[in-house]
């Protein structure tokens, strides 16, 4: 019996391994093995240090990436949700959060003048989504040498390696190895499949000045903006993990009770 269970466990393990296998076949280098404190079952974005990191990451996004990359699925108010960079327990409703309001007002969003029907611009409010830097994909391509900067809302979960991958791309610019010729507008990045990327190196050390005084080394900026993008792709992670721990505790206790009930029922029956 025990042997069979071991066999089954091994089988299941292999099956799950098979599910994870497709990433194997890739010419690019494996993403760097970096970690963030908010990862894992017990890590939380809401922890003070991690929230500070999200705020720094947002600053990098705002000052650097957002000039090319859109983030269409995220609303300003999300920044003030629990687990978000600007969550403040004083403002349970993120629409009231003054930091969020100020960030939104800093953007100009499209609107329609209801008196004339003309398109106009107005300052953003927390309920608005992040406006995109380009009017459409064609404009984005035209300004970026024919390559479309992917939308950032879900980017961290749209690549094998997730945040590690984004971090690696930002750190992975190199001179091309012998034999690789680059066209104008192309760059060599060892983490990109095929090695050639159309994005110019977006970050350098000291590119942003952090409000909390953290020295802005390239690595620090890359870690911070990757953290922010991981949050943007999975904004309910804290809620998910908290619920998960409660559910697991419940199920473990419940299973214990059911096991006792099962033993009680079968007490006098051989099997």
């Amino acid at each position: 019996m025990l042997r069979k269970i071991t066999l089954l466990a091994a089988t299941l393990g292999l099956l799950l391994g098979a599910a994870a296998a497709p990433a194997l076949a890739n010419t690019a280098e494996e993403p760097a093995n970096v970690h963030w404190d908010f990862e894992g079952p017990f890590g939380r974005y809401g922890k003070a240090e991690n929230q500070a990191q999200l705020q720094r990451g947002y600053k990098v996004y705002r000052e650097v990436c957002s000039s090319c990359h859109s983030m269409k699925l995220v609303s300003f108010r999300n920044l003030g949700d629990p687990g978000g960079p600007f969550w403040n327990p004083k403002y349970k409703n993120p629409n009231d959060n003054p930091v969020v309001k100020a960030i939104a007002a800093d953007y100009q969003v499209d609107d329609i003048d209801t008196d004339t029907g003309d398109t106009t611009k107005r300052p953003g409010i927390p309920a608005d989504r992040f406006p995109s830097p380009f009017a459409n994909d064609y404009a984005a391509k035209a300004s970026n040498g024919g390559a479309n900067p992917p939308d950032m809302s879900l980017l961290a979960r749209a690549r094998e390696g997730q945040g590690r991958y984004i971090f690696s791309i930002l750190m992975g610019y190199e001179n091309p190895p012998a034999g690789v010729t680059l066209n104008p507008g192309q760059h060599y990045n060892k983490y990109m499949a095929g090695g050639v990327i159309a994005m110019p190196p977006p970050l350098k050390a000291g590119q942003v000045t952090y409000d909390d005084g953290t020295p802005s080394s390239l690595e620090q900026e890359a870690m911070d903006v990757s953290a922010f993008l991981m949050w943007a792709a999975d904004p309910h992670a804290d809620d998910r993990k908290n619920t998960g721990i409660a559910v697991l505790i419940y199920l473990l206790l419940f299973s214990g009770l059911l096991y006792l009930a099962y033993r009680q029922v079968w007490k006098n029956e051989s099997h």
Binding site: L248, A261, Y262
Partner: peptide, 29 residues
């Protein structure tokens, strides 16, 4: 009684994936 116990164990595995490994079975693309 036996089925109920087994279902509960199955739900534990299920919950581990739902809450802690939601991307494990999917594909990034």
């Amino acid at each position: 009684a036996k089925d109920a116990f087994a279902m509960s164990l199955f739900l534990i595995v299920f919950a581990v994936f739902v809450f802690f490994l939601p991307d494990a079975m999917g594909h990034a693309d």
